[in-house]
């Protein structure tokens, strides 16, 4: 505990909150980042920027390191070398708990916490009132009368929408989505995509990790392609689609997936 208190005490920089669309400063910027797991390097990034305008998708073959890249952005993962910046501030200077409430994450599997739907929302905001809880469900298209339902009884699609509502309960400015639609049927996947599009229209930044190339045009304006633990290409989606470098072209055509 002493170590933890000291770590929290040194993290003095305020977490940027609802930074809006700033064309001059990236949302996230990674420089010289290396991530190792069990002594093995799983990601090496010279430089990558996730812009503060539009929506970015991180794509690449399975196991390429794209989820690791996303997890670096809310410090569920930390690099052994290099710097990750959130709107210009080094993540190492931020309180990780405050950062995660600003930079929310929805995971691939629709995980519900034990208890009711309301318990799940209160896990993120213990002060959430009944009206606010109903509004949180309404925001993701869930019926407000589900509040008292055991969260385990929800369908997979409903659980993922609950996960989105739970992550929004901390009033984040950014939502990271780690293959958040890949465990869902097409109808529910589309529903999540539409909800996220609505959030971005409300000024919340979304960063997707996806391996669904068909969905790219629907969900993203910018793309970062990760192949074999390295950034193969990044930029506006249209430009990358038009002039992919050879490894990315092989990935787009399915040869490297």
């Amino acid at each position: 505990m002493r170590i933890r208190r000291r770590a929290a005490a040194t993290a003095v920089a305020p977490v940027p909150h609802h930074v809006g669309h700033d064309p001059d400063r990236p949302l996230f910027e990674l420089d010289g980042v290396v991530v190792e797991r069990g002594g093995t390097q799983v990601l090496a990034v010279d430089h990558v920027e996730i812009p503060c305008t539009g929506t970015t998708a991180i794509v690449g073959p399975s196991g390429s390191g794209k989820s690791t890249l996303l997890r670096l952005c809310n410090r569920l993962e930390v690099p052994v070398a290099g710097t990750v910046r959130f709107h210009g501030t080094d993540l190492a200077d931020l309180d990780p708990l405050a950062l995660r409430r600003e930079v929310a994450m929805v995971f691939q599997q629709p995980v519900s916490l034990p208890g009711t739907v309301e318990d799940n929302l209160r896990a993120a905001d213990p002060d959430l009132g009944a009206d606010a809880a109903r509004a949180a469900l309404d925001r993701v298209g869930l019926a407000p009368d589900l509040l008292g339902r055991d969260a385990d009884q929800l369908s997979g699609g409903e659980r993922q929408r609950l996960a989105l509502a739970r992550s929004l309960a901390t009033d984040p400015g950014v939502v990271l989505l780690d293959e958040a639609t890949s465990a869902l049927d097409p109808a529910n996947a589309t529903r999540i995509e539409e909800l996220v599009a609505g959030l971005t229209a409300d000024g919340i930044h979304a960063v997707w990790v996806s391996h669904d190339l068909d969905a790219l045009e629907r969900i993203a304006d910018h793309v970062v392609v990760v192949i074999d633990g390295r950034i193969a290409q990044q930029g506006p989606l249209a430009a990358v689609r038009r002039e992919p470098v050879p490894p990315v072209e092989r990935f787009f055509t399915g040869e490297a997936a």
């Binding site: 569920l76 708990l97 995660r100 409430r101 995971f107 916490l113 034990p114 896990a123 739970r166």
Partner: peptide
């Protein structure tokens, strides 16, 4: 692990996330 990471991702402390 998945439930614990969900709790961490909504800003709970590590101690709170593993308590249950």
């Amino acid at each position: 692990r998945d439930q614990i990471e969900v709790r961490l991702a909504i800003g709970q402390t590590g101690r709170d996330a593993i308590r249950p």
